[in-house]
Design a protein around this nucleic acid. Sequence first.
RNA 1: GUGGGUGUAGCUCAGUUGGUUAGAGUGCCUGGUUGUGGCCCAGGAGGUCGAGGGUUCAAAUCCCUUCACUCACCCCA
Length: 419
Amino acid sequence: MAKITSVRGFRDILPEETPKWQRVEEKIRSIFYDFGIREIRIPVLEKTELFKRGIGEATDIVEKEMYTFLDRGNEYLTMRPEATACVIRAYIEHHLYEKDPIAKLFTIGPMFRRERPQKGRFRQFHQINVEFLGQEDPRIDAELMAMLMHLLGEVGIGNLKLEINSLGCDICRPAFRETAIGFLKEREDKLCADCQRRLETNPLRIFDCKNESCQETITGAPLILDFICDECRSHFEKVMEYLGLLQVPFVVNRRMVRGLDYYTRTAFEITTESLGAQNAVTGGGRYDGLVEMLGGPAISGIGFAIGFDRLIAMLPDTDGHDTKHPHVFIAALGNEAQRHAFSLCNSLRQAAVRAEMDLSGKSLKSQMKRANKLGCTHTLIIGDAELAEATAQLRNMQDGTQETVDIKDVQALKQRVTA
RNA sequence: GUGGGUGUAGCUCAGUUGGUUAGAGUGCCUGGUUGUGGCCCAGGAGGUCGAGGGUUCAAAUCCCUUCACUCACCCCA
């Protein structure tokens, strides 16, 4: 039979790698708890309209990357390409703002975008999302970023660059947009082919272009920071001030823009050298108009998404099994011994001792080899003769010491192993 | 969607200007040695050389097509 493979861009995370994911997730959850951020679990499938309205109809994500299909019943559904819009949808749908005007939420899970896969980019990828709703104070921006940097540090990642910018608001952005486009149009012929196209589709994106000649032609171009209104300016300055107070290092990147339309004011990105071209580990920002845009009250928000897969890729590999915890291998020789070992194995597991045994009746040598491979801390060798006396030899794999133990007394056995 | 690179054993890879039964290391299995595992020794299993077509007496090797993986562009986390 021909074999069936996974779908392009969708990958398996094998048992050797999952401990890494679990460790990070555990750490992150505990930090979220300390910062008063509570988990919300949301569906993977949403109505297409949610993303069209939330992310923006003209964005690449909505235009060409979403997994959208017509469901039975003539309704367009989409595998979520990002989480913020979904969290806001749930926030509005359940009137969470009625119970408490302030909400700090996190969610972890897979997202789907049909891009061409490459290093650090998959069609199913995982994000850790945090959203702070109902607070407009610049301190909340600083708090969020400080927490984020702390979290990444705790997980074991250094050498990160936090870049921030302000994108202005509905009041100041249109004026900037117009002058910027005017400036770029005048120099259209000097821009690279991609940027010429962007001029039509997403002109602000040109400021992000990595092409050197483009960077040269746009020096002296108007910058959003010179156009933002007094309120946005004051907000941005306070954010920087508070970041300083919290001792969070950052640089202002006056050219940074975001790919989703809902961002306003504070925008930030965390990059690293070690990930190849896909160097953004985290992106985020303020979205003060989104809740209203999705049919809720005028409530401000700010959040970020960590690329979980990219985060994991930055961490050193660990061995698949841990040898720290007690782990007994029962090597049984002979039918009766096997019989007893099977039952003993079960009892040990129920007594919260990790236990393994071999069921194929292999030689003692192979059994020991397997015990070693599994990283067992102890081996218990039972033969039919030992069975009559209800004792067996327990060997500590680390220091080589051995002792005779009662194999009928599971609790005593547990004590010997966990000592 | 556009380009480059790579597809040979479970894994990492050799394979000369086309030339007999396709190789190594590692892992797996069996046995020996060892104080009952690690080290060492011997043996064994495992490959439609990504797939399809073509050139040739002869193709893993050359040509075409296709698929997959990968890196980069684009975009983003």
